[in-house]
């Protein structure tokens, strides 16, 4: 466990908390893509199937449980508790455009043809594109609440910090994982445009709105 990894995990955790705080405080999930949140719940579910079969550390187990809980509570908030505030007309990204290639790729490029390994690979590929419905929604409405932009910033920062973690692990442990690294790079690239807007607008006190 290096500093990039722990900061990455904390950044991921903070992102999920920020989203729940936004929904809970405003009693509204306006501007949040329910589709992206369903994809993230699916990502954690398919990745953490080893939760009961493969013990790694207390830290690992606790974080997995917290991530799963946050993901499911968020979906519950959007589709049940505050569903009247859910902006369903703007959450129109076609999920099959993501799911079909991701399912295909996870069967084609994986480390072994076992159900858990294929599902783990699926979760890695899916995570790299799961934010697209959310980014699509923002580009469609042309704006995002400031707290939503903080959420996206920390969610992007998490994968960027994982890239630093992988470079560190390659140098110190000679450990690398091609599937995670390639997907992580793709995932981080999707946030670059947003990072630019975050730094040039939100950090200067302006609301994120697109021309």
């Amino acid at each position: 466990m290096n500093v990039f990894r722990i900061l990455g995990d904390l950044s991921h955790l903070l992102a999920m908390f920020l989203l729940l705080v936004k929904i809970w405080r405003s009693k509204s999930c306006a501007g949040i893509s329910g589709k992206s949140q369903i994809l993230f719940a699916l990502v954690f579910t398919t990745r953490y199937l080893d939760l009961f079969s493969n013990f790694i550390s207390i830290y690992n187990t606790v974080m997995k449980v917290v991530f799963l809980l946050c993901a499911y509570v968020t979906v519950y908030m959007i589709y049940w508790k505050f569903r009247k505030t859910f902006d369903i007309e703007n959450d129109t990204f076609r999920l099959e455009f993501l799911l079909v290639p991701v399912i295909g790729l996870s069967f084609l490029v994986n480390y072994s043809y076992t159900p858990t390994e294929v599902l783990w690979t699926f979760s890695i590929y899916l995570e790299s594109v799961a934010i697209l419905p959310q980014l699509f929604m923002i580009s469609k409405t042309g704006e995002a609440e400031t707290i939503t932009t903080h959420y996206l910033f920390f969610l992007g920062l998490y994968r960027a910090l994982y890239l630093a973690n992988w470079i560190w692990r390659y140098q110190t442990e000679n450990f690398y994982d091609q599937i995670s690294v390639v997907s992580g790079v793709v995932q981080t690239i999707f946030y670059c445009d947003f990072f630019y807007l975050y730094v040039t607008k939100v950090l200067k006190g302006k609301k994120l709105s697109l021309p």
Binding site: R5, D50, N54, I56, S57, N60, F67, Y111, S112, D177
Partner: peptide
Amino acid sequence: EARFDQKDEL
């Protein structure tokens, strides 16, 4: 080397 038994990352 694939990582089957060492999925320590989240």
